[in-house]
Design a protein around this nucleic acid. Sequence first.
DNA 1: TGTTATTTGTTCGTATGTATG
DNA 2: TCATACATACGAACAAATAAC
Lengths: 254, 254
Amino acid sequence: MQTQGTERARNTLNFLRRQITTGAWPVGERIPIEPELTELLSVGRSTIREAVRSLASMGMLETLPGRGTFVRSSTPSSALLTQFLGAYTLEELLSYRRALDIEAAQQAALNRTPDDIEALEAAVSTELRRRHCTAFASEEEPADMAGRFHYLMFDAAQNRLLASLYAGITDRLEAPEHRERLTHGSDADAMQEEHLRIFDAIKRGDFIDAVHAMADHVDHDLVVVTSEDEIIPPLRRSASAQARIDEARQRKGS
Amino acid sequence: MQTQGTERARNTLNFLRRQITTGAWPVGERIPIEPELTELLSVGRSTIREAVRSLASMGMLETLPGRGTFVRSSTPSSALLTQFLGAYTLEELLSYRRALDIEAAQQAALNRTPDDIEALEAAVSTELRRRHCTAFASEEEPADMAGRFHYLMFDAAQNRLLASLYAGITDRLEAPEHRERLTHGSDADAMQEEHLRIFDAIKRGDFIDAVHAMADHVDHDLVVVTSEDEIIPPLRRSASAQARIDEARQRKGS
DNA sequence: TGTTATTTGTTCGTATGTATG
DNA sequence: TCATACATACGAACAAATAAC
Protein backbone atom coordinates (compact mmCIF):
# COMPACT_ATOMS: atom_id res chain seq x y z
CA MET A 1 0.00 0.00 0.00
CA GLN A 2 2.82 2.35 0.88
CA THR A 3 4.28 4.04 -2.12
CA GLN A 4 7.27 4.69 0.07
CA GLY A 5 9.44 1.67 0.52
CA THR A 6 9.37 1.39 4.27
CA GLU A 7 7.23 2.46 7.12
CA ARG A 8 9.28 2.04 10.24
CA ALA A 9 12.48 3.29 8.62
CA ARG A 10 10.75 6.43 7.38
CA ASN A 11 9.17 7.16 10.73
CA THR A 12 12.49 6.63 12.42
CA LEU A 13 14.24 9.03 10.08
CA ASN A 14 11.52 11.64 10.45
CA PHE A 15 11.63 11.36 14.21
CA LEU A 16 15.37 11.85 14.35
CA ARG A 17 15.24 14.75 11.93
CA ARG A 18 12.49 16.45 13.90
CA GLN A 19 14.47 16.11 17.11
CA ILE A 20 17.33 17.91 15.43
CA THR A 21 15.49 20.63 13.53
CA THR A 22 13.31 21.51 16.51
CA GLY A 23 16.35 21.83 18.70
CA ALA A 24 15.30 19.08 21.10
CA TRP A 25 18.75 17.70 20.36
CA PRO A 26 20.93 20.83 20.08
CA VAL A 27 23.92 21.10 17.80
CA GLY A 28 27.01 19.69 19.46
CA GLU A 29 25.08 17.39 21.76
CA ARG A 30 25.29 13.61 21.74
CA ILE A 31 22.10 11.81 20.83
CA PRO A 32 20.87 8.74 22.75
CA ILE A 33 22.84 5.58 22.08
CA GLU A 34 21.52 2.99 19.70
CA PRO A 35 20.06 0.58 22.28
CA GLU A 36 18.16 3.48 23.87
CA LEU A 37 16.74 4.53 20.52
CA THR A 38 15.65 1.00 19.70
CA GLU A 39 13.65 0.91 22.90
CA LEU A 40 12.35 4.47 22.49
CA LEU A 41 11.06 3.86 18.99
CA SER A 42 10.40 0.13 19.20
CA VAL A 43 12.39 -0.64 16.08
CA GLY A 44 15.43 -2.80 15.51
CA ARG A 45 18.95 -1.54 15.76
CA SER A 46 19.51 -1.93 12.02
CA THR A 47 16.60 0.41 11.35
CA ILE A 48 18.02 2.99 13.73
CA ARG A 49 21.41 2.73 12.12
CA GLU A 50 20.06 3.23 8.62
CA ALA A 51 18.22 6.38 9.65
CA VAL A 52 21.29 7.70 11.44
CA ARG A 53 23.39 6.94 8.40
CA SER A 54 21.04 8.92 6.17
CA LEU A 55 21.25 11.97 8.39
CA ALA A 56 25.01 11.56 8.67
CA SER A 57 25.32 11.61 4.88
CA MET A 58 23.42 14.89 4.90
CA GLY A 59 25.83 16.35 7.41
CA MET A 60 23.28 16.67 10.19
CA LEU A 61 24.79 13.90 12.32
CA GLU A 62 28.29 12.57 12.79
CA THR A 63 29.03 9.22 14.35
CA LEU A 64 32.29 8.66 16.15
CA PRO A 65 33.03 4.97 16.76
CA GLY A 66 33.30 4.20 20.40
CA ARG A 67 32.06 7.61 21.46
CA GLY A 68 28.58 8.14 20.15
CA THR A 69 26.62 10.08 17.56
CA PHE A 70 26.59 13.87 17.65
CA VAL A 71 24.43 16.58 16.13
CA ARG A 72 26.54 18.58 13.72
CA SER A 73 24.01 20.79 11.99
CA SER A 74 20.33 21.52 12.26
CA THR A 75 20.00 21.61 8.48
CA PRO A 76 21.40 19.54 5.63
CA SER A 77 24.97 20.72 5.24
CA SER A 78 26.51 22.69 2.43
CA ALA A 79 28.87 19.76 1.94
CA LEU A 80 25.89 18.24 0.28
CA LEU A 81 25.59 21.32 -1.85
CA THR A 82 29.20 20.87 -2.89
CA GLN A 83 28.36 17.36 -3.98
CA PHE A 84 25.37 18.66 -5.87
CA LEU A 85 27.60 21.11 -7.69
CA GLY A 86 29.90 18.28 -8.71
CA ALA A 87 27.77 17.39 -11.68
CA TYR A 88 28.20 20.68 -13.49
CA THR A 89 30.82 22.12 -15.79
CA LEU A 90 33.32 24.75 -14.84
CA GLU A 91 31.60 27.26 -17.08
CA GLU A 92 28.28 26.69 -15.36
CA LEU A 93 29.90 27.04 -11.95
CA LEU A 94 31.57 30.33 -12.87
CA SER A 95 28.31 31.74 -14.15
CA TYR A 96 26.69 30.82 -10.88
CA ARG A 97 29.54 32.31 -8.86
CA ARG A 98 29.17 35.49 -10.85
CA ALA A 99 25.50 35.74 -9.94
CA LEU A 100 26.25 35.31 -6.25
CA ASP A 101 29.13 37.78 -6.19
CA ILE A 102 27.13 40.49 -7.90
CA GLU A 103 24.08 40.06 -5.69
CA ALA A 104 26.30 40.05 -2.61
CA ALA A 105 27.96 43.28 -3.69
CA GLN A 106 24.56 44.89 -4.01
CA GLN A 107 23.36 43.62 -0.65
CA ALA A 108 26.62 44.62 0.99
CA ALA A 109 26.20 48.18 -0.26
CA LEU A 110 22.68 48.23 1.16
CA ASN A 111 23.25 46.45 4.47
CA ARG A 112 26.85 47.06 5.51
CA THR A 113 27.53 48.21 9.06
CA PRO A 114 30.43 50.41 10.19
CA ASP A 115 32.16 47.23 11.37
CA ASP A 116 31.85 45.72 7.91
CA ILE A 117 33.36 48.81 6.34
CA GLU A 118 36.25 48.67 8.74
CA ALA A 119 36.92 45.00 8.06
CA LEU A 120 36.76 45.43 4.30
CA GLU A 121 39.03 48.44 4.45
CA ALA A 122 41.55 46.45 6.46
CA ALA A 123 41.47 43.64 3.90
CA VAL A 124 41.99 46.01 0.97
CA SER A 125 44.77 47.94 2.68
CA THR A 126 46.50 44.69 3.60
CA GLU A 127 46.61 43.95 -0.11
CA LEU A 128 48.06 47.40 -0.62
CA ARG A 129 50.77 47.01 1.96
CA ARG A 130 51.67 43.63 0.62
CA ARG A 131 52.39 45.09 -2.77
CA HIS A 132 54.67 47.79 -1.42
CA CYS A 133 56.43 45.98 1.35
CA THR A 134 58.12 42.66 0.73
CA ALA A 135 58.16 41.97 4.44
CA PHE A 136 54.57 40.85 4.12
CA ALA A 137 55.26 38.78 1.06
CA SER A 138 55.60 35.40 2.68
CA GLU A 139 52.79 35.67 5.17
CA GLU A 140 49.88 34.82 2.99
CA GLU A 141 49.02 33.76 -0.51
CA PRO A 142 47.51 36.48 -2.69
CA ALA A 143 44.66 34.14 -3.58
CA ASP A 144 43.77 33.81 0.08
CA MET A 145 43.67 37.54 0.50
CA ALA A 146 41.47 37.95 -2.54
CA GLY A 147 39.22 35.28 -1.10
CA ARG A 148 39.05 37.09 2.20
CA PHE A 149 37.75 40.23 0.57
CA HIS A 150 34.94 38.28 -1.01
CA TYR A 151 34.07 36.52 2.24
CA LEU A 152 33.96 39.79 4.14
CA MET A 153 31.70 41.19 1.50
CA PHE A 154 29.28 38.28 1.94
CA ASP A 155 29.38 38.96 5.66
CA ALA A 156 28.43 42.57 5.03
CA ALA A 157 25.58 41.45 2.79
CA GLN A 158 23.97 39.89 5.87
CA ASN A 159 22.50 37.03 3.91
CA ARG A 160 23.38 33.62 5.34
CA LEU A 161 22.04 31.86 2.30
CA LEU A 162 24.26 33.69 -0.16
CA ALA A 163 27.22 33.16 2.15
CA SER A 164 26.81 29.41 2.46
CA LEU A 165 26.16 29.00 -1.24
CA TYR A 166 29.32 30.94 -1.96
CA ALA A 167 31.26 28.75 0.45
CA GLY A 168 29.91 25.73 -1.37
CA ILE A 169 31.03 26.94 -4.76
CA THR A 170 34.51 28.02 -3.70
CA ASP A 171 34.92 24.56 -2.19
CA ARG A 172 33.92 23.06 -5.48
CA LEU A 173 36.18 25.30 -7.56
CA GLU A 174 39.12 24.12 -5.51
CA ALA A 175 38.64 20.55 -6.67
CA PRO A 176 41.69 19.40 -8.66
CA GLU A 177 39.89 18.95 -11.96
CA HIS A 178 38.73 22.56 -11.88
CA ARG A 179 41.62 24.23 -10.14
CA GLU A 180 44.08 23.40 -12.89
CA ARG A 181 41.84 24.98 -15.50
CA LEU A 182 41.51 28.25 -13.59
CA THR A 183 43.79 31.21 -13.35
CA HIS A 184 43.53 34.83 -12.35
CA GLY A 185 42.79 37.19 -15.20
CA SER A 186 44.56 40.16 -13.66
CA ASP A 187 47.81 40.75 -11.87
CA ALA A 188 47.82 41.67 -8.19
CA ASP A 189 47.84 45.39 -8.95
CA ALA A 190 44.77 45.33 -11.14
CA MET A 191 42.88 43.06 -8.79
CA GLN A 192 43.55 45.33 -5.88
CA GLU A 193 42.35 48.29 -7.88
CA GLU A 194 39.13 46.48 -8.59
CA HIS A 195 38.64 45.53 -4.97
CA LEU A 196 39.22 49.13 -4.02
CA ARG A 197 36.57 50.28 -6.43
CA ILE A 198 34.07 47.75 -5.09
CA PHE A 199 34.88 48.68 -1.52
CA ASP A 200 34.44 52.35 -2.26
CA ALA A 201 30.97 51.77 -3.68
CA ILE A 202 29.96 49.57 -0.75
CA LYS A 203 31.24 52.17 1.70
CA ARG A 204 29.21 54.90 0.02
CA GLY A 205 26.16 52.64 -0.06
CA ASP A 206 26.00 53.04 -3.82
CA PHE A 207 24.60 49.68 -4.87
CA ILE A 208 24.59 50.60 -8.54
CA ASP A 209 28.30 51.23 -8.59
CA ALA A 210 28.90 48.18 -6.41
CA VAL A 211 27.11 45.96 -8.88
CA HIS A 212 28.95 47.39 -11.86
CA ALA A 213 32.33 47.24 -10.20
CA MET A 214 31.74 43.63 -9.20
CA ALA A 215 30.41 42.71 -12.64
CA ASP A 216 33.66 44.00 -14.05
CA HIS A 217 35.77 42.30 -11.40
CA VAL A 218 34.38 38.76 -11.58
CA ASP A 219 35.28 38.50 -15.24
CA HIS A 220 38.90 39.25 -14.41
CA ASP A 221 39.09 37.36 -11.16
CA LEU A 222 38.88 33.80 -12.36
CA VAL A 223 39.13 32.80 -15.99
CA VAL A 224 39.21 29.47 -17.75
CA VAL A 225 42.42 28.28 -19.32
CA THR A 226 41.74 26.29 -22.46
CA SER A 227 45.29 25.58 -23.59
CA GLU A 228 48.81 26.63 -22.65
CA ASP A 229 48.55 30.31 -23.39
CA GLU A 230 45.12 30.82 -24.75
CA ILE A 231 42.77 32.29 -22.23
CA ILE A 232 39.13 32.86 -22.92
CA PRO A 233 37.05 35.00 -20.62
CA PRO A 234 34.07 33.36 -18.97
CA LEU A 235 30.55 34.00 -20.23
CA ARG A 236 31.71 33.95 -23.84
CA ARG A 237 32.04 37.66 -24.22
CA SER A 238 34.76 40.09 -25.02
CA ALA A 239 37.30 40.93 -22.41
CA SER A 240 35.97 44.04 -20.76
CA ALA A 241 32.46 43.99 -19.44
CA GLN A 242 32.82 47.60 -18.37
CA ALA A 243 33.59 48.76 -21.89
CA ARG A 244 30.35 47.26 -23.08
CA ILE A 245 28.41 48.64 -20.17
CA ASP A 246 29.66 52.10 -21.06
CA GLU A 247 28.87 51.47 -24.68
CA ALA A 248 25.33 50.47 -23.78
CA ARG A 249 24.96 53.61 -21.71
CA GLN A 250 25.93 55.78 -24.64
CA ARG A 251 23.52 53.91 -26.87
CA LYS A 252 20.80 54.49 -24.31
CA GLY A 253 21.57 58.16 -24.05
CA SER A 254 21.50 58.83 -27.77
CA MET B 1 43.86 5.36 12.64
CA GLN B 2 41.00 6.49 10.44
CA THR B 3 39.69 9.86 11.43
CA GLN B 4 36.61 8.80 9.55
CA GLY B 5 34.34 6.60 11.57
CA THR B 6 34.04 3.65 9.26
CA GLU B 7 36.05 2.10 6.54
CA ARG B 8 33.96 -0.56 4.84
CA ALA B 9 30.77 1.49 4.97
CA ARG B 10 32.52 4.47 3.42
CA ASN B 11 34.09 2.42 0.66
CA THR B 12 30.76 0.79 -0.05
CA LEU B 13 29.01 4.13 -0.35
CA ASN B 14 31.74 5.56 -2.53
CA PHE B 15 31.63 2.51 -4.79
CA LEU B 16 27.89 2.74 -5.25
CA ARG B 17 28.02 6.45 -5.88
CA ARG B 18 30.77 6.04 -8.44
CA GLN B 19 28.80 3.38 -10.27
CA ILE B 20 25.92 5.83 -10.54
CA THR B 21 27.75 9.04 -11.38
CA THR B 22 29.96 7.35 -13.98
CA GLY B 23 26.92 5.87 -15.66
CA ALA B 24 28.00 2.28 -15.10
CA TRP B 25 24.55 1.93 -13.64
CA PRO B 26 22.37 4.15 -15.84
CA VAL B 27 19.37 6.06 -14.59
CA GLY B 28 16.30 3.86 -14.61
CA GLU B 29 18.23 0.62 -14.35
CA ARG B 30 17.99 -1.79 -11.45
CA ILE B 31 21.16 -2.26 -9.47
CA PRO B 32 22.45 -5.71 -8.43
CA ILE B 33 20.53 -7.32 -5.59
CA GLU B 34 21.91 -7.25 -2.10
CA PRO B 35 23.47 -10.75 -2.04
CA GLU B 36 25.33 -9.94 -5.27
CA LEU B 37 26.65 -6.70 -3.85
CA THR B 38 27.60 -8.52 -0.67
CA GLU B 39 29.77 -10.90 -2.65
CA LEU B 40 31.06 -8.21 -5.01
CA LEU B 41 32.28 -5.94 -2.22
CA SER B 42 32.94 -8.57 0.44
CA VAL B 43 30.88 -6.76 3.06
CA GLY B 44 27.80 -7.76 5.00
CA ARG B 45 24.30 -7.10 3.90
CA SER B 46 23.67 -4.47 6.55
CA THR B 47 26.62 -2.46 5.32
CA ILE B 48 25.20 -2.57 1.82
CA ARG B 49 21.81 -1.57 3.09
CA GLU B 50 23.12 1.45 4.97
CA ALA B 51 24.95 2.72 1.92
CA VAL B 52 21.90 2.19 -0.24
CA ARG B 53 19.79 4.00 2.32
CA SER B 54 22.12 6.99 2.26
CA LEU B 55 21.93 7.28 -1.50
CA ALA B 56 18.17 6.79 -1.40
CA SER B 57 17.82 9.69 1.03
CA MET B 58 19.75 11.82 -1.45
CA GLY B 59 17.37 10.88 -4.23
CA MET B 60 19.94 8.97 -6.26
CA LEU B 61 18.43 5.55 -5.55
CA GLU B 62 14.93 4.36 -4.87
CA THR B 63 14.10 0.99 -3.37
CA LEU B 64 10.79 -0.60 -4.24
CA PRO B 65 9.83 -3.37 -1.84
CA GLY B 66 9.77 -6.70 -3.54
CA ARG B 67 11.02 -5.36 -6.85
CA GLY B 68 14.52 -4.08 -6.38
CA THR B 69 16.55 -0.91 -6.08
CA PHE B 70 16.63 1.48 -9.02
CA VAL B 71 18.81 4.38 -10.06
CA ARG B 72 16.68 7.52 -10.02
CA SER B 73 19.23 10.27 -10.58
CA SER B 74 22.92 10.53 -11.28
CA THR B 75 23.23 13.46 -8.89
CA PRO B 76 21.82 14.28 -5.46
CA SER B 77 18.28 15.44 -6.08
CA SER B 78 17.10 19.00 -5.97
CA ALA B 79 14.56 17.89 -3.38
CA LEU B 80 17.50 18.00 -1.04
CA LEU B 81 18.31 21.46 -2.24
CA THR B 82 14.77 22.47 -1.37
CA GLN B 83 15.29 21.08 2.10
CA PHE B 84 18.53 23.01 2.37
CA LEU B 85 16.74 26.21 1.45
CA GLY B 86 14.18 25.55 4.17
CA ALA B 87 16.41 27.08 6.82
CA TYR B 88 16.44 30.57 5.34
CA THR B 89 14.14 33.55 5.51
CA LEU B 90 11.91 34.72 2.72
CA GLU B 91 14.04 37.82 2.27
CA GLU B 92 17.17 35.73 1.82
CA LEU B 93 15.41 33.49 -0.67
CA LEU B 94 14.19 36.41 -2.74
CA SER B 95 17.64 37.91 -2.87
CA TYR B 96 18.95 34.60 -4.12
CA ARG B 97 16.19 34.29 -6.68
CA ARG B 98 17.04 37.75 -7.90
CA ALA B 99 20.65 36.77 -8.47
CA LEU B 100 19.64 33.72 -10.49
CA ASP B 101 17.06 35.53 -12.59
CA ILE B 102 19.46 38.29 -13.55
CA GLU B 103 22.30 35.96 -14.43
CA ALA B 104 19.92 33.81 -16.45
CA ALA B 105 18.70 36.84 -18.38
CA GLN B 106 22.28 37.69 -19.26
CA GLN B 107 23.12 34.15 -20.30
CA ALA B 108 19.92 33.86 -22.28
CA ALA B 109 20.81 36.99 -24.25
CA LEU B 110 24.21 35.49 -25.00
CA ASN B 111 23.26 31.89 -25.71
CA ARG B 112 19.69 31.87 -27.03
CA THR B 113 18.94 29.90 -30.16
CA PRO B 114 16.25 30.71 -32.74
CA ASP B 115 14.10 28.04 -31.08
CA ASP B 116 14.44 29.77 -27.72
CA ILE B 117 13.39 33.08 -29.23
CA GLU B 118 10.36 31.44 -30.77
CA ALA B 119 9.32 29.79 -27.52
CA LEU B 120 9.74 32.97 -25.50
CA GLU B 121 7.83 34.98 -28.07
CA ALA B 122 4.99 32.47 -27.90
CA ALA B 123 4.89 32.74 -24.12
CA VAL B 124 4.82 36.53 -24.16
CA SER B 125 2.21 36.72 -26.88
CA THR B 126 0.05 34.23 -25.01
CA GLU B 127 0.08 36.67 -22.14
CA LEU B 128 -0.93 39.39 -24.59
CA ARG B 129 -3.80 37.43 -26.04
CA ARG B 130 -5.00 36.52 -22.62
CA ARG B 131 -5.36 40.16 -21.69
CA HIS B 132 -7.37 41.04 -24.76
CA CYS B 133 -9.54 38.01 -25.14
CA THR B 134 -11.54 36.69 -22.24
CA ALA B 135 -11.91 33.36 -24.00
CA PHE B 136 -8.47 32.48 -22.71
CA ALA B 137 -9.18 33.72 -19.23
CA SER B 138 -10.01 30.44 -17.59
CA GLU B 139 -7.38 28.31 -19.22
CA GLU B 140 -4.42 29.10 -17.08
CA GLU B 141 -3.44 31.05 -14.01
CA PRO B 142 -1.50 34.24 -14.72
CA ALA B 143 1.10 33.16 -12.20
CA ASP B 144 1.73 29.98 -14.17
CA MET B 145 2.25 31.94 -17.35
CA ALA B 146 4.66 34.28 -15.64
CA GLY B 147 6.49 31.23 -14.34
CA ARG B 148 6.64 29.75 -17.81
CA PHE B 149 8.39 32.81 -19.18
CA HIS B 150 11.07 32.50 -16.53
CA TYR B 151 11.54 28.78 -17.12
CA LEU B 152 11.89 29.30 -20.86
CA MET B 153 14.47 31.96 -20.18
CA PHE B 154 16.50 29.54 -18.07
CA ASP B 155 16.26 27.06 -20.92
CA ALA B 156 17.66 29.66 -23.27
CA ALA B 157 20.48 30.40 -20.88
CA GLN B 158 21.73 26.85 -21.48
CA ASN B 159 22.99 26.45 -17.97
CA ARG B 160 21.65 23.35 -16.26
CA LEU B 161 22.96 24.47 -12.90
CA LEU B 162 21.09 27.76 -12.91
CA ALA B 163 17.97 25.99 -14.10
CA SER B 164 17.92 23.38 -11.36
CA LEU B 165 18.73 25.91 -8.67
CA TYR B 166 15.87 28.05 -9.91
CA ALA B 167 13.54 25.05 -9.81
CA GLY B 168 14.64 24.45 -6.24
CA ILE B 169 13.87 27.95 -5.13
CA THR B 170 10.49 28.21 -6.82
CA ASP B 171 9.61 24.94 -5.09
CA ARG B 172 10.60 26.47 -1.82
CA LEU B 173 8.73 29.73 -2.39
CA GLU B 174 5.55 27.74 -2.91
CA ALA B 175 5.71 26.40 0.63
CA PRO B 176 2.65 27.58 2.60
CA GLU B 177 4.55 29.69 5.10
CA HIS B 178 6.12 31.72 2.30
CA ARG B 179 3.35 31.71 -0.24
CA GLU B 180 0.97 33.64 1.97
CA ARG B 181 3.51 36.38 2.50
CA LEU B 182 4.11 36.87 -1.22
CA THR B 183 2.18 38.78 -3.79
CA HIS B 184 2.79 40.22 -7.22
CA GLY B 185 3.97 43.81 -7.25
CA SER B 186 2.46 44.68 -10.61
CA ASP B 187 -0.81 44.00 -12.37
CA ALA B 188 -0.91 41.72 -15.37
CA ASP B 189 -0.47 44.60 -17.81
CA ALA B 190 2.71 45.90 -16.21
CA MET B 191 4.16 42.45 -15.82
CA GLN B 192 3.60 41.64 -19.44
CA GLU B 193 5.24 44.91 -20.45
CA GLU B 194 8.28 43.95 -18.42
CA HIS B 195 8.44 40.47 -19.91
CA LEU B 196 8.20 42.01 -23.34
CA ARG B 197 11.12 44.28 -22.59
CA ILE B 198 13.23 41.40 -21.31
CA PHE B 199 12.32 39.28 -24.30
CA ASP B 200 13.22 42.06 -26.70
CA ALA B 201 16.67 42.41 -25.16
CA ILE B 202 17.26 38.64 -25.23
CA LYS B 203 16.13 38.48 -28.85
CA ARG B 204 18.55 41.24 -29.82
CA GLY B 205 21.34 39.55 -27.86
CA ASP B 206 21.75 42.72 -25.82
CA PHE B 207 22.82 41.31 -22.48
CA ILE B 208 23.15 44.75 -20.90
CA ASP B 209 19.54 45.59 -21.56
CA ALA B 210 18.47 42.10 -20.58
CA VAL B 211 20.14 42.44 -17.21
CA HIS B 212 18.67 45.87 -16.56
CA ALA B 213 15.20 44.87 -17.66
CA MET B 214 15.32 41.81 -15.43
CA ALA B 215 16.74 43.75 -12.49
CA ASP B 216 13.75 46.03 -12.78
CA HIS B 217 11.30 43.18 -13.22
CA VAL B 218 12.29 40.96 -10.28
CA ASP B 219 11.58 43.77 -7.84
CA HIS B 220 8.02 44.00 -9.13
CA ASP B 221 7.43 40.33 -9.72
CA LEU B 222 7.28 39.04 -6.17
CA VAL B 223 7.14 41.28 -3.13
CA VAL B 224 6.77 40.61 0.56
CA VAL B 225 3.53 41.47 2.30
CA THR B 226 4.14 42.61 5.84
CA SER B 227 0.60 43.48 6.90
CA GLU B 228 -2.81 43.85 5.32
CA ASP B 229 -2.11 46.66 2.92
CA GLU B 230 1.42 47.62 3.56
CA ILE B 231 3.77 46.29 0.94
CA ILE B 232 7.48 46.76 1.14
CA PRO B 233 9.64 46.05 -1.86
CA PRO B 234 12.31 43.38 -1.44
CA LEU B 235 15.93 44.35 -0.99
CA ARG B 236 15.02 47.27 1.25
CA ARG B 237 15.18 49.89 -1.43
CA SER B 238 12.81 52.36 -2.97
CA ALA B 239 10.23 51.14 -5.40
CA SER B 240 11.79 51.63 -8.78
CA ALA B 241 15.18 50.15 -9.40
CA GLN B 242 15.17 51.57 -12.89
CA ALA B 243 14.80 55.11 -11.65
CA ARG B 244 17.90 54.73 -9.58
CA ILE B 245 19.80 53.04 -12.36
CA ASP B 246 19.04 56.03 -14.59
CA GLU B 247 19.99 58.36 -11.81
CA ALA B 248 23.31 56.60 -11.40
CA ARG B 249 23.92 56.84 -15.12
CA GLN B 250 23.45 60.60 -15.07
CA ARG B 251 25.78 60.89 -12.11
CA LYS B 252 28.36 58.85 -13.98
CA GLY B 253 28.02 60.95 -17.08
CA SER B 254 28.45 64.25 -15.32
C1' DT C 1 51.04 0.99 30.96
C1' DG C 2 47.13 -1.91 31.12
C1' DT C 3 42.34 -3.08 32.19
C1' DT C 4 37.55 -2.37 31.86
C1' DA C 5 33.20 -0.22 30.45
C1' DT C 6 30.87 2.08 26.82
C1' DT C 7 29.54 2.63 22.20
C1' DT C 8 29.54 1.98 17.44
C1' DG C 9 30.88 -1.32 13.31
C1' DT C 10 29.90 -5.55 11.06
C1' DT C 11 28.05 -9.98 10.18
C1' DC C 12 24.63 -13.46 10.01
C1' DG C 13 20.34 -16.31 10.65
C1' DT C 14 15.60 -15.97 10.55
C1' DA C 15 11.02 -14.20 9.93
C1' DT C 16 7.80 -11.33 7.29
C1' DG C 17 5.64 -8.75 3.52
C1' DT C 18 5.12 -7.96 -1.37
C1' DA C 19 5.25 -8.40 -6.36
C1' DT C 20 5.47 -11.75 -10.30
C1' DG C 21 4.09 -15.67 -12.79
C1' DT D 1 -3.99 -20.73 -5.00
C1' DC D 2 0.69 -21.62 -4.81
C1' DA D 3 5.61 -21.04 -5.54
C1' DT D 4 9.47 -18.10 -6.26
C1' DA D 5 12.31 -14.11 -5.80
C1' DC D 6 13.31 -10.18 -3.48
C1' DA D 7 13.33 -6.60 -0.08
C1' DT D 8 12.28 -5.24 4.76
C1' DA D 9 13.05 -5.97 9.49
C1' DC D 10 14.66 -7.91 13.96
C1' DG D 11 18.03 -9.35 17.21
C1' DA D 12 22.06 -11.90 18.70
C1' DA D 13 26.91 -12.21 18.52
C1' DC D 14 31.50 -10.61 17.98
C1' DA D 15 34.97 -6.92 16.49
C1' DA D 16 37.00 -2.46 16.96
C1' DA D 17 37.52 2.16 18.73
C1' DT D 18 37.47 5.22 22.60
C1' DA D 19 37.61 7.00 27.30
C1' DA D 20 38.28 6.59 32.15
C1' DC D 21 40.53 4.59 35.87
